[in-house]
């Protein structure tokens, strides 16, 4: 999924699974700023590292979740990567493309954590560790709900939405594209996108209030 957003540069990954890591498009100078932060933390100023962390957190989290569907593991892996960068700050060079570099570190870290899990579970015993598969957006949305009941509801409401509605939702909220950008990409008019999304949101909201009601019902009980 989402292969359209792949970086055209530098990554040259042999793995089909390297996910797109969109640099926040609202900041055109993000690359240069990151390089400045990188030098800062290499000069023992941890604030440089923190700035990179805030800059990339959402993107890393997205990719992580789509691979492991486990919030806890993803959060842990992101922090591990940054602690590791800090410890090795003196040996590091300035990478050509900082987001990609960190992204690859993150991917390795996830693989390692996943490997540990797999060793523990009998299901995977005797099986070599495989490249993590990325889940579809729908699977992520459903899988993210911890509560079984809510997961079913989510499944249900997504099943009610049309493919077009789901595509627009993914582009608008997950990929964080503006309505204009979606319009350019899908050649639907902004008006159509707006209306389609609006109908979808109303449907979602009905389910949400239903969620709250069931929750209340549980509490009262």
């Amino acid at each position: 999924m989402a292969a359209h957003n792949l970086f055209p540069v530098a990554l040259s990954s042999p793995h089909k699974n390297i996910a797109p890591l969109p640099v926040p498009d609202s900041k055109p100078a993000a690359g240069e700023a990151l390089a400045v932060f990188w030098t800062e933390f290499q000069q023992h100023n941890e604030h440089g590292l923190y700035k990179i962390y805030h800059e990339l957190y959402d993107n890393l989290y997205h990719y992580g979740i789509s691979v492991v569907l486990d919030q806890q593991m993803v959060k842990e892996a992101i922090n591990d990567v940054f602690v590791e960068l800090w410890k090795k700050r003196e040996q590091l060079i300035v990478p050509d493309h900082i987001p990609n570099y960190i992204f690859i570190c993150f991917k390795r870290r996830l693989s390692k954590l996943l490997g540990k899990e797999h060793k523990r579970s009998a299901k995977y015993a005797g099986q070599l560790f495989q490249e993590p598969e990325e889940q579809s957006y729908e699977a992520v949305l459903i899988g993210m709900e911890a509560d079984t009941q809510l997961r079913h509801k989510m499944e249900k409401v997504l099943a009610q939405l049309t493919a077009r509605q789901k595509e627009f939702i993914r582009l608008r909220f997950y990929e964080n594209m503006s309505m204009e950008e979606i319009s350019l990409k899908t050649s639907a008019s902004v008006r159509t996108i707006y209306n389609t999304l609006h109908t979808a949101m109303v449907q979602l909201r009905r389910i949400l209030s239903f969620f709250s009601l069931t929750l209340l019902w549980y509490l009262v009980k």
Partner: peptide, 14 residues
């Protein structure tokens, strides 16, 4: 609040 929760949920964000 409802809207914010949904924006974060659909965007899969903390």
């Amino acid at each position: 609040e409802k809207a914010r929760e949904w924006v974060l949920r659909l965007g899969v964000r903390l």
